[in-house]
Amino acid sequence: MENNLHLKNYTEILIDEAIEKLWSEMEDICKCQRCYYDTKAIALNHLPSKYTVTTKGEVYTKINNFRNQIQVDVMKEVMKAIMTVSEHCSHNPEEAVKY
């Protein structure tokens, strides 16, 4: 069996990129690791998974082909998730990390 194969959910990669982009444009939200994972989990639960098996170098080539099909939905769901997490933060306000 090939040892350089990877199982990857492309939706997860797109969500990571969307969170990074939207967070860079927003100032009044917590950007701690807990809020990041809460945002990511909410968005992942509202979008279809797109798993594929690739060799290590294929991941970013394939994601570029997939990106245009789902990017609008990903951005919409990530924005909704950011707002949900911001309104219902899982930690005390004193623990918020804004940068």
Rank of each mutant, 00 (worst) to 15 (best):
A41N: 14
Y37E: 15
Q33E: 10
S49W: 00
N45H: 05
Q33C: 06
L22P: 02
Y51P: 06
K31W: 04
N45C: 06
I42V: 15
P48Q: 03
P48N: 07
C32L: 11
D28R: 07
S24P: 00
E17C: 00
A41S: 14
N45T: 06
R34I: 12
Y37D: 09
K40L: 05
E17G: 08
K21G: 02
D28N: 15
K50P: 02
K40H: 09
I29G: 03
K31Q: 13
T39F: 07
D16T: 07
K31L: 03
E25C: 03
W23K: 01
C35N: 00
K31D: 11
S24D: 12
S49T: 05
C32R: 09
W23G: 00
L47H: 09
E27W: 01
Y37G: 07
S24I: 07
D16L: 09
K21F: 08
P48Y: 12
E27H: 06
C32M: 03
R34M: 06
Y51E: 13
K31H: 04
D16C: 10
E17Y: 07
L47Y: 00
L22C: 11
K50N: 13
C30R: 05
K40T: 01
E17P: 13
E25Y: 11
Q33P: 01
P48R: 10
I19W: 08
W23Q: 14
W23C: 08
A18S: 15
Q33S: 14
K40Q: 11
S49V: 07
M26H: 03
H46E: 13
H46A: 11
E27I: 10
L44Y: 02
L44M: 15
D16I: 12
L47K: 00
C32E: 06
H46L: 04
I29Q: 04
I29A: 06
E27V: 02
C35A: 09
K40S: 10
C35E: 05
S49M: 01
L22Q: 14
I19S: 11
L44R: 10
E20Q: 11
K50Y: 15
S49A: 07
L44I: 03
E25Q: 15
L47W: 04
Q33F: 07
L22G: 01
I29V: 15
N45D: 15
E25F: 09
S24C: 04
H46S: 08
R34S: 04
C32Q: 14
E20N: 13
D38V: 03
A43P: 03
Y36W: 02
I29T: 03
N45W: 00
W23T: 11
C30Q: 12
C35H: 02
T39M: 10
E17M: 04
K50I: 01
Y36I: 05
K40E: 02
D38R: 09
C30K: 05
H46I: 00
